[in-house]
Each structure stands twice: as structure tokens, then as C-alpha cells.
Design a protein around this nucleic acid. Structure first.
Lengths: 128, 128
DNA sequence: TCTTGACCTTCCAGCAACAGGAAGGTTCAT
DNA sequence: ATGAACCTTCCTGTTGCTGGAAGGTCAAGA
């Protein structure tokens, strides 16, 4: 199938699919006219990539996961380790954002938000 | 003062300070030898930038905030609006990450993490 | 005086992970 | 035959810096 169909079936934009080929994540066949030709296994991989990207794995982690996925003698511990470290990272991000949120909300609350120039937000930013 | 001192006082790397000049956020004087020459008001701005960046504002938002900061006839409502929309954005990010976290934790829990190839994480990624 | 080391300068490249668009070839339906 | 809807490659731009190369400047020590 052509890239458009692969895009529809995988949920990834054609641009992204070509990019994934550029960086060596997939390598579809080519038709005589030069068009890329995707098989159902390719689509399967693309969906795998789509899903793992949307779960927050970096492209490089996706590469590792994909390699493990195709390695029938893999140890599930290897996969679990990647996922666990990603979980830790997500936890950290959530903590940081929550802290940010608190500070910001405090500032927003303190600001009158009227047409006068007094602004605790700017004051805090300039002093903090 | 030289850029090194400005860096120490503002907490921003010298590279970043030059970059901020490149994109027009600050414009220090120059000495005869070509070195940048920062005054205390420059350092003040740099600290403002440092703080607002670390609060999650984009460089472009920082530019707006800085302009408001220097505009003595500003309305605090303008600042509050920027901060409020940033707050909304942070909330959205937190929600997304929390959802991600839940899915990922579920997967990590389901995986035995041993030396066998059976792996619910990969299964989910390939089907989801 | 020479030299060493810590500064400073500009410019160029690269990171992630694509997105947008130009210029052109192909296929299919009308 | 023509137009729409595909497809191709190549180049640029995004965000916010960071690293490095090649070179100028300055102050202190031998």
C-alpha cells in the first residue's frame, strides 16, 4: 500500500512516516514508480511507534523497544527497565509542573488584574 | 561588568545571555575592546528572564512580560492574562502526564520483568 | 619580557521531532 | 485532455539553547 494508506491505518502523518524511514526506524519496499510500498507488518510497526511515542517514549527509546519487540529471545526485564525509568521521569515532570503551578497560581491570585499598573506578578518576577 | 560577572549575578550561562541579545531581549553597551558591558539594570532584566523562564514562560512570553514590566502605564490585567493562560496550559500538561503515568504504571505492574520474552508492555504497544 | 591562563569575541553546527512548502512525477476519473 | 489527488526529493524553519573552533585581550607570575 502507498504511504497515504499506511498513514490512515497507523494514525501517523505521512511526513512523520518518511521521517521515521530517514532515521532508520522502518524500511518499506519500493514500487517500480518509486512509491513506497508498505506491508501489514510495516503498518504494525508504525502503530507500535505511534503508541509508544504517545506514551512519552523518545524516538530513541522507541527504537530500543522496537528492537526488543522483534527480538524473540528478549528478556521482559529489559523492557520493564525502560518503562520503569520512563515512569520515574514522568513522575519528576509532574512534580516540577505541580510546583510551578502552585507558584503561578499564587501569583495570579495576588494580582488584581485591573487597569492599574501595580502587579505582584511582575514584582515577583523581578525580585525572585 | 563583563559577561562572566553578569552570568554569575543573574544565574544564566554566558551563552544564554549572548543568545538573548541575539534575539533582541537585551542590548548591553560595549567597551572599547569589544567586550559587552552590563549595568545593574541589565542584570536585573536577566534575572527577570531567568525567573520567568523557569516558571515555564516561553521566550516570547518573556518578551511580552519584559515589555509590560518596562511599561509604567501597563494594566495589570494584561500580565494576569498571560499568567492565567500559562496556568491553564500547565494544568493540561499535568493532566496528560498523569494519564500517561497511569497507563504506564499499569503496564509496568503487569510485566514480570524476568528473563523470559513474554511482555505485556510490548503486547500493549503493538495492539493499543 | 615572556608566557600562561582566564577571560572575551564571532561564527558555525547540532540537538528533538518533526512541519511546511516548492518543484516536479504519477495515476485515475471524467 | 485535463484536473484532482496522489506521490517523490530537497530545503528551510521551529524552540531554546549548547558546544566547539579560531582568535583577540588582559592581568599576574617567573
Amino acid at each position: 500500500m502507498n504511504i497515504g494508506e499506511a498513514s490512515r491505518r497507523s494514525g501517523l502523518p505521512a511526513k512523520t512516516i518518511r521521517y521515521y524511514e530517514d532515521i532508520g526506524l522502518i524500511s518499506p519496499d519500493r514500487c517500480e514508480n518509486g512509491y513506497r510500498d508498505y506491508g501489514s507488518d510495516d503498518v504494525h510497526k508504525l502503530r507500535f511507534l505511534h503508541r509508544s511515542r504517545s506514551l512519552g517514549f523518545s524516538v530513541d527509546e522507541c527504537r530500543q523497544l522496537l528492537a526488543l519487540y522483534e527480538d524473540k529471545s528478549r528478556a521482559s526485564a529489559d523492557v520493564k527497565e525502560i518503562a520503569t525509568s520512563k515512569l520515574t521521569e514522568i513522575d519528576r515532570k509532574i512534580r516540577e509542573l505541580t510546583e510551578l503551578r502552585r507558584t503561578l497560581e499564587h501569583l495570579v491570585h495576588a494580582c488584581h488584574g485591573n487597569d492599574r499598573p501595580d502587579c505582584p506578578i511582575l514584582e515577583e518576577l523581578s525580585e525572585g
